[in-house]
Amino acid sequence: MATKDTTLRTRDRVATTVLYVVLLLGLLAVAGPFVWMALSSLKPEREIRDVPPTWWPETVTLDNFRGLFSRLDFPLYFLNSALVATLVMVGNLLFCSLVGYALAKLRYPGKRALFLAVLGMLMVPGMVTFVPQFVLVSNMGLTNTYAGLILPFLVGPFGVFLMRQFLQSIPDELIEAARVDGAGEFRIFWRVVLPLCRPALATLGILTFLASWNNFLWPLVVATTEDKYTLPVALALYSVGENERNYGLLLAGAVVVVLPVLIVFLVLQRHFLRGIATTGIK
């Protein structure tokens, strides 16, 4: 009995070791490039091009990051990105929770059709709406404006779906009780329902902010002058042509684009994962 236990334990230990090795190699392959990016952004351009490469920077320098200020206007792009992402987030939180409440808890004609339209929209590829959206925005004279950058993203089918799913779990009795107490419909929504939605709002807020922060194609075609560039657009446009292999500056720029998102993600990761668990959609 004792020997059988020992062999089992040895086999378990071998299995565990193999498991850890595989997982660590996987982690290295997936997260390693981020570490490599951060370390390399602190090296002078010459050391970045060393063959064989240095792992840890021999000379630590912030020159690459300084270049983002002197050769590019990164603070402005950063502010543009933050402004656009914040407004997109607020729009989604407000409009999607309002309609999500109606779809989950109110009875009115046309509700089913509205929900089906929203669900159907989840399947439409971005390219279908892309051209008409661009025509619309340019006809409204909104190219190269913040409004033009924001308008197509103020609402989204995903947000409605998420809020509706969550709101359905709120007990009807709570809303009925508030109604019996004589509270108006909007007051019920604002004072009773919305405070209960905090977890869903957090998830939706993070996901929409992030999607907007990382959004690339739309600002690439709508922002036509540098003062309206968002971070990804500025970085992408800088990285073509003569600066294509100017890795020091490009890596520093990539760090600036990714770092805020990484911090938000690390602090609030459970909200990300809940978003997927609730809806199965990124």
């Binding site: 981020f34 971070l231 294509e244 990539a254 990761q269």
Partner: peptide, 27 residues
């Protein structure tokens, strides 16, 4: 879990910078 999830939340433009650097034929 967080490590494997990192690329999902990162901007494709930043990822492209890193990957073009990783795949550079010389350096």
């Amino acid at each position: 879990r967080v490590g494997f999830y990192l690329p999902v939340v990162a901007s494709i433009v930043a990822l492209s910078v890193v990957w073009r650097f990783l795949l550079d034929p010389e350096v």
